[in-house]
Amino acid sequence: MAIELYLVRHGNTAFNADGRLRGLADPPLDDVGECQAAAAAAALSWTAAASILSSPLQRAARTAEIIAGTMGIEHHVDARFNDRDYGFWTGHRKSDVLAEWGTVDAAPGVEPTESVLARVLPALDDLAE
């Protein structure tokens, strides 16, 4: 059985607006983010989505709640979809990290891509079952 999966990024936060790495920091959506979530809900309104899932981070959960409420579907939380952990670099400007390390991946203490995939891919497999 095939499933359709729509990926939606969370709405804007003050960290986004300031170019900061969010990771596991938990800033709320700002006014722009609330509008972006409403726009995403409108854009998805034609789908026959059965449910929506998000990480527990408030920016993702709030975006999902807006979409779910608009569409009249359930919202579920799964921590496996949490953002990447930027460790010490959380809250730092991405441009500063890039200037110092060349890439975010090279900055010490950043969750390796392999670790992100190791938690997210099983969650996606669970959706397919």
Rank of each mutant, 00 (worst) to 15 (best):
M1E: 11
A2T: 12
E4Q: 12
L7I: 10
H10G: 10
N16I: 12
D18T: 09
R20H: 05
R22H: 15
G23M: 01
G23A: 05
A25V: 05
P27R: 01
P28T: 09
L29M: 12
C35P: 11
Q36T: 06
A37S: 07
A37D: 01
A37V: 07
A38H: 11
A38C: 05
A39P: 12
A40L: 09
A41Q: 03
A43H: 10
W46F: 15
T47Y: 10
A50R: 12
Q58H: 05
A61H: 10
R62Y: 05
A64D: 01
E65I: 02
G72V: 03
I73R: 12
I73V: 11
H75F: 05
A79K: 03
F81E: 00
F81Q: 03
N82M: 14
D83C: 00
G87Q: 09
F88D: 07
F88L: 13
W89R: 08
K94L: 13
D96F: 03
A99M: 05
A99D: 09
A99C: 11
V104L: 14
V104E: 01
D105S: 15
A106S: 07
A107Q: 14
P112F: 08
T113C: 04
E114G: 14
L117D: 10
R119H: 06
V120W: 02
L121P: 15
P122H: 05
A123P: 11
D126M: 09
A128Y: 11
E129R: 08
